[in-house]
């Protein structure tokens, strides 16, 4: 299933905010968006369709988002991922209590881009979706995600699992710096201490495959002390 085919439900009591987020998602390419203005409406709407994700405001006029979330979890559709739109710092503590992670909430006011990134991350994580972009171009090189290959100068090379993961992460966050620790956590989710050197090696291999001059990278740049960035 395509990412943008997901059914999204927005629950917030502020009409202007609902509208804004709806427009934002539509512009991004999401095709099915519904809204609800309070817990009662949310319950009704939620039962009417199969939703893939809920954007849930924490403070609602007839209840709070966390309780509603617990309620929704009880039902059959209990695996639905949710992102809380919170306006309070203390919500973080409650979230941890619910066993949710940082991807699952965003504080107002939020940068729209941040919301979109979070949604994408959560959807992909939950449904293992692909972005719908089967290929990415980096300079003269074309990456084929479905095949797991890299095409350069007419030749096709297989990417190793680690290279694939690493490159994907960088592409998904193109233009943004990713810290060494984040990348290590991505490659070695079970415990990434001590693997910084391995990361360097993988980056070097990627550069050898992608860059015209691996020693002077144009796209896969190092940000000294911090991490790497795909330009």
């Amino acid at each position: 299933m395509n990412l943008y085919d997901s059914n999204i439900l927005i629950v917030d009591d502020e009409p202007a905010l609902r509208e804004m987020v709806q427009e934002l998602l539509k512009k991004e390419g999401y095709l099915h968006i519904d809204v609800a203005k309070d817990c009662k409406q949310a319950r009704e709407v939620f039962n009417s369709k199969e939703y893939h994700m809920v954007l849930l405001d924490v403070m609602l006029p007839d209840g709070d988002g966390f309780s509603l979330y617990e309620e929704l979890k009880q039902g059959e559709k209990s695996q639905i991922p949710v992102i809380f739109l919170s306006a309070r710092d203390e919500d973080y503590a409650r979230l941890k209590g619910l066993g949710l992670g940082a991807d699952d909430y965003i504080t107002k006011p939020f940068l729209p881009q941040e919301l979109l990134l979070r949604m994408k991350a959560v959807l992909k994580r939950t449904y293992r979706l692909e972005e719908g972009l089967p290929q990415t171009r980096i300079g003269e090189v074309l990456i084929n995600w479905e095949a797991g290959t890299l095409e350069s100068q007419g030749e096709s090379y297989m990417l190793t699992a680690k290279e694939y993961t690493l490159l994907k992460k960088l592409c998904d966050n193109r233009g943004k710096i990713l810290s060494i620790n984040t990348l290590c956590d991505t490659l070695w989710p079970d415990g990434s201490y001590g693997y910084e050197n391995s990361l360097m090696v993988h980056m070097r291999r990627l550069r050898e495959k992608i860059e015209v001059n691996p020693s002077k990278p144009e796209y896969l740049v190092t940000v000294r002390g911090l991490g790497y960035k795909l330009k």
């Binding site: 905010l17 804004m20 934002l24 306006a87 107002k108 006011p109 940068l111 729209p112 881009q113």
Partner: peptide
Amino acid sequence: HDIRTPLALVLGDAEN
């Protein structure tokens, strides 16, 4: 908390 929601709207529109 009350300030944050209007701010969210302003931010969204500005970015738009």
